[in-house]
């Protein structure tokens, strides 16, 4: 399907910045081989960026972490940026986020540093183009999979990025996201956690602490997982026989500091878990900067599922 679409170089990388990764929905049906999921750490903002750019669900976007990336358009492009406010400018002028805009040939799109949130999603109408590896272009450097070259390489200054040529018809759907869906990531979020099987193995005091503490996001935070700093949680079991870990799983190693596991987590692991964050709470956590505070709230699956289905229904065919 995608193989027949025309690819063309459309963007030149002026400065590659610390971390910009090509991400589609991720790699599925291969986790039993030890291959991680990949995909956008903030599914919510990624979905909005693609939707506003007029792209179908699953299109590949650039996930820009921290900022620092500078790109030059080699022809006129319709784009949308959603997610973190990284102080993006077009030839020095601030770029409006959460809406479709035109990026003119020769203009420089520059991301500065985090104002609100950590990861911005840049979608170009047509979608970024790369050859899928194991069914996905999601970039996982550790596994040498995906990205523009197929080997999970980082962008380099001077790289040229290809897109699929848009069909020529004007983009359908809304071009600007309503105010109430635009996230302000500076607020301290309350994250929904669905309790897991080992929750009863934590001491009463630790369970109280787990859900009544403002946890601080550690420096040890990346696409594999985010460590939270706070009171030491104590579990009666130190380790489990390794087993599969789902997105958002919150594991507690012997040091008592929980780690919420995100898209690039290892596929199996053996620490006891409090439970799993809802997919949208995992997305929200991925936008937190080190030092930011978060709270965990134990939830039943009913309302969380309804909320998630409602979100997906707006984007997925």
């Amino acid at each position: 399907m995608t193989a027949q679409r025309k690819m063309e170089s459309a963007i030149r990388v002026h400065r590659s910045g610390p971390l910009a990764l090509l991400q589609d929905l991720g790699r599925f049906g291969v986790r039993h081989l030890g291959v991680t999921q990949g995909g956008p750490a903030d599914l919510y903002s990624w979905a909005w960026a693609n939707y506003l750019a007029g792209n179908p669900w699953g299109s590949a976007s650039l996930e820009i972490t921290f900022g620092g990336l500078q790109l030059v358009a080699e022809r006129d492009l319709d784009i949308a940026i959603a997610g973190a406010d990284l102080g993006a400018t077009l030839d020095g002028q601030p770029v409006p986020l959460w809406q479709r805009i035109t990026w003119k040939e020769g203009q420089k799109l520059a991301f500065a540093s985090p104002v609100s949130g950590l990861r911005a999603y840049l979608s170009v109408r047509g979608g970024f183009a790369a050859e899928p590896v194991m069914g996905s272009v999601a970039t996982v450097g550790r596994e040498q999979l995906g990205g523009f070259d197929g080997w999970g390489s980082k962008l380099a200054d001077g790289d040229r990025l290809a897109i699929y040529t848009p069909d020529g018809k004007p983009a359908e759907g809304m071009s600007e996201a309503p105010d109430d869906v635009r996230m302000d990531f500076r607020e301290s979020p309350v994250l929904e956690l669905l309790p897991g099987a080992q929750i009863g193995e934590f001491t009463g005091r630790s369970l109280y602490d787990a859900f009544n503490t403002w946890w601080r996001v550690d420096d040890r935070a990346d696409r594999m997982g985010v460590r939270l700093l706070g009171p030491k949680l104590q579990c009666r079991i130190g380790s489990l026989i390794s087993e599969g870990i789902n997105l958002g799983g919150v594991q507690v190693p012997p040091d008592g500091q929980p780690i919420a596991l995100l898209n690039d987590r290892q596929t199996i692991g053996g620490y006891p878990r409090l439970g799993a964050l809802s997919p949208l709470s995992a997305s929200r956590l991925a936008q937190c900067l080190p030092g930011q505070e978060v709270r965990l709230r134990a939830c039943g699956s009913g309302p969380v599922l309804e909320h998630y289905r409602c979100f997906l229904a707006g984007f997925r065919p």
Partner: peptide, 15 residues
Amino acid sequence: DLVPSYTTLLVVFDP
């Protein structure tokens, strides 16, 4: 996705 391991099978489905 399905993730088999020593004593378990993790079943991930489309919600």
